[in-house]
Simulated assay, not measured.
Amino acid sequence: MSWVANVMISVGGVDNGQVEALSEWLRTAAPRRAQPEACGVGFLNLLTSTDTNQWGGWKHPECTVWAGALNHADLVALRHRVSEVPWREPNLVQLLIMDQEEGFFRMWMMRGGGLRQFAPLEPNEEDEGFYQDW
């Protein structure tokens, strides 16, 4: 049986090498949530390459986004790994994770030398301060 987590990470273009290394860690060494001794949970693909742009529209995106569907990933270990990467442009790093059976992404950003969550723990439509009317 699988347990899927959808993961996206947006970085500055100078940090593509760091995401490639993160992807290789996910493929070969990342621990699994229920079996830490087992390694490898998937990998990330670049969605915004000028050669294979996966996005709609007539223009090329002005961001760099990688994504993957990870299986049995230890998401705490993933967040820890992302926080330890020597990012060249850390304030551009945005990590979005939607774990299985969740209906929305949670977002973390590098701030103050660490990875911090910038989304609620769970959506709460009763919280008037969370939403802004446009």
Rank of each mutant, 00 (worst) to 15 (best):
A29D: 10
A29W: 08
P31Q: 05
P31M: 03
P31I: 05
P31T: 05
R33W: 10
R33Y: 11
P36I: 12
P36V: 14
E37M: 05
A38G: 06
G40A: 04
G40L: 02
G40T: 08
G42D: 08
G42S: 07
F43D: 11
N45K: 00
L46H: 13
L46A: 11
L46M: 12
T48S: 10
S49H: 03
S49K: 00
S49Y: 02
T52V: 12
T52Y: 15
W55G: 12
W55V: 13
G56R: 03
G56S: 12
K59Q: 14
T64V: 14
T64D: 09
V65P: 00
W66P: 06
W66I: 12
W66G: 06
W66Q: 07
A67S: 15
A67Q: 12
G68A: 05
G68P: 04
A69C: 15
N71R: 05
H72T: 11
H72E: 14
A73R: 00
A73D: 12
A73C: 15
A73H: 09
D74C: 02
L75F: 14
L75V: 14
V76G: 08
A77F: 09
L78S: 03
H80K: 04
H80R: 02
R81N: 05
R81L: 03
V82N: 00
S83T: 09
E84P: 03
V85L: 10
V85N: 01
P86A: 13
P86K: 05
W87E: 14
R88G: 10
E89G: 06
E89H: 05
E89D: 14
P90G: 14
N91S: 15
L92M: 12
L92F: 11
L92Y: 08
V93C: 05
V93D: 03
Q94V: 14
Q94M: 14
L95G: 01
L96A: 13
L96C: 10
L96V: 11
M98S: 08
D99R: 00
Q100G: 11
Q100F: 11
E101Q: 12
F105P: 05
M109F: 09
M109G: 04
M109W: 06
M110K: 05
M110G: 00
M110D: 07
M110P: 01
M110A: 03
G113P: 04
G114E: 14
G114K: 06
L115S: 05
L115P: 04
F118S: 03
A119M: 09
A119I: 03
A119G: 07
P120G: 09
P123A: 07
N124L: 04
N124I: 05
E125L: 15
E126G: 07
